[in-house]
């Protein structure tokens, strides 16, 4: 194992984040505030409680997940796309760093960044509503697992993309809709039965449900189903990354 190589990549990627710390944090904080204003006040005035949790508090886990997903994907996809685009990838490929070590450095840093952002959003939320976390361990577990999984997914997008537009298109066309339809701002049990069934095909439902359970012990699906589905999705991403490195797809010619 070239641990020094891994930590070099990790630290380098984190430095980029801290260099632009203000920009990195300001946008999630502003959007959180907006969600509170729009959803919390406008809708919260009409729906006061879901499952015994005040609406404002109910949407906190979903909001964190929404940012976690988009940030993980954009951090990780940009992290690997940029060296490909600028040509500096040559150095990673010619270094004694294995494919797995490269993934650990890039994906680890992307996940660490989005976990930080998630925690900042959580802290911002407490300014608006009182948030209780009944199972902090499970909360962190879901936070980290989701960040890692979607950073892996972002890494794959960053490898696949051959232009800046493609970098944006998957988050825009797939991830944002799935997150909004995944129960970020409502319980899927309020949907008509047909759409409830459809929702079970949405992986984000399981993430948000498990995450919300860690806060309030209310969930749309069982905790272990949530955990299981998260791990399945992570395994799929890991397999895809493994395949990419074995074939050299988009990295080596």
């Amino acid at each position: 194992m070239n641990w020094r190589g891994v930590s070099t990549i990790f630290v380098y990627e984190m430095k980029r984040f801290f260099r632009t710390l203000f920009q990195s944090l300001i946008s999630p904080v502003i959007s959180t505030t907006l969600y509170f204003v729009v959803f919390g006040s406008a809708i919260g005035g009409r729906i006061t409680q879901i499952d015994g949790v005040s609406y404002g508090a109910f949407i906190v886990p979903g909001m964190i997940m929404l940012s976690l997903l988009t940030q993980s994907i954009s951090n990780a996809s940009f992290g690997i796309y940029f060296p490909r685009f600028s040509g500096t990838i040559y150095e990673y490929l010619s270094a004694p760093v294995s494919a797995m070590e490269m993934v650990m450095g890039f994906v680890g840093a992307a996940a660490a960044k989005s976990v930080l952002i998630g925690l900042v959003i959580l802290a911002t939320s407490t300014l608006f509503v009182s948030v209780s976390i009944m199972h902090p361990f499970w909360m962190m577990l879901f936070l980290v697992l989701t960040a890692v999984t979607f950073s892996l997914f972002g890494f794959i997008i960053g490898l696949w993309a051959d232009g800046f537009e493609k970098l944006q298109i998957i988050p825009l066309l797939i991830v944002t809709p799935l997150t909004f339809l995944g129960g970020s701002f409502y319980s899927i049990r309020v949907l008509p039965p047909f759409w409830q069934q459809v929702s079970y095909f949405n992986p984000v439902v399981y993430l948000i449900s498990g995450f919300r359970w860690a806060f309030y012990e209310v969930s749309d699906v069982s905790l272990y189903v949530s955990l299981g589905m998260t791990c399945v999705f992570m395994a799929v991403c890991l397999l895809a990354v493994g395949w990419i490195f074995r074939t050299g797809y988009r990295l080596k010619t």
């Binding site: 070099t8 600028s86 040509g87 500096t88 150095e91 270094a95 004694p96 760093v97």
Partner: peptide, 24 residues
């Protein structure tokens, strides 16, 4: 390399010492 592949936002010192630890 033949082409000037560098990440331009970095400082010279950082770029060079990055290469050393990347190689372990």
């Amino acid at each position: 390399p033949q082409e000037l592949h560098l990440s331009i936002f970095e400082k010279v010192w950082d770029a060079v010492s990055f290469s050393r630890t990347l190689f372990g």
